[in-house]
Design a protein around this nucleic acid. Structure first.
Ligand SMILES: [Mn+2]
Ligand SMILES: [Mn+2]
Ligand SMILES: [Zn+2]
Ligand SMILES: [Zn+2]
Lengths: 141, 141
DNA sequence: TTGCAAATGAGAATGATTAGCATTAGCAGT
DNA sequence: ACTGCTAATGCTAATCATTCTCATTTGCAA
């Protein structure tokens, strides 16, 4: 019942759509999902939710700190469970595989770059676009 | 007449809209401009171009390597002159000021992060969102 | 000059995301 | 358990940036 705590502490009612979205992310099959991904997965599993509701819930969860939003190359944004650990992403340009990484040196040098120029770092986004080295890459022929 | 060379070598006809867009960037008043920015600036200076043409020209210039496109926080993308030097950006969340920086260590560790995980780095995007430290910040009250 | 492919411009179309609004469903208090 | 009220949902319509269509214009090579 971790989900309920999450929702309650965020001041959000425990509704069916919210629980479904949450458990989708907690099932852990895919960490990074777009609104459309979530919508389709729920439909596929027989759960009826409106696309608008999916968008709303995802944004509410982000504001509540339950999810984190990312903007990978392309138009649509993706969400993932916020597990406290900050990390950045490597995205395969061929198969779309997403790998997570954390580099303390990079983090530190970003802070330094900011402060040296009269800024106080609030946030950053770092995406590495790359190609899987075969044979891992499930390149779409 | 550097512009003409640019265009010719890219296989692009030297048309009025293209020359105007190019000289706008080369005037150097603002390095980072969105399509809308470019459109409005051209209109303001009495030059009539269609918005669609601006979009087309910007993308052609990007493909030709004349401009580089960035996706700062927010929806609209911005372009800047490609002067050969790669750099990343710090964006002030309050006043929108954009500062450029380059950190060899960060670059190198990105490459390493990728190769260590079976990727060949192709590209990356790094944006630092921060707040100007007063009194530099032209915060919009 | 002429001819013609390439480029332009105005507006329609697109695609992701959000807003509006009537209907439904949590849930606090009986 | 029953009421009532507010928040949440689910349509649909609206936004907003960007792209597409296509009739008209323009650069430029012969
Ligand atoms: Mn992640
Ligand atoms: Mn720049
Ligand atoms: Zn791959
Ligand atoms: Zn500022």
């Amino acid at each position: 019942m971790n989900e309920l705590l999450h929702l309650k502490s965020a001041g959000l009612k425990s509704t069916l759509p919210r629980l479904k979205v949450l458990s989708l992310f907690e099932s852990g099959n895919d960490r990074h999902l777009s609104a459309e991904d979530v919508y389709k997965k729920l439909l596929a599993s027989g759960d009826d939710v409106g696309l608008a509701t999916v968008y709303r819930v995802l944004n509410q969860f982000e504001q509540a700190g339950i999810l984190v939003k990312h903007h990978f190359e392309g138009d649509k944004s993706v969400f993932e469970l916020n597990q406290g650990d900050h990390h950045d992403h490597i995205v395969c340009l061929q198969c779309g595989r997403v790998e997570e990484f954390f580099d303390a040196t990079i983090e530190q040098r970003q802070k330094k770059a900011a402060s040296e120029r009269g800024f106080e770092l609030h946030d950053h986004s770092l995406y590495i676009y790359a190609n899987c080295i075969k044979p891992k890459c499930k390149y779409k022929n």
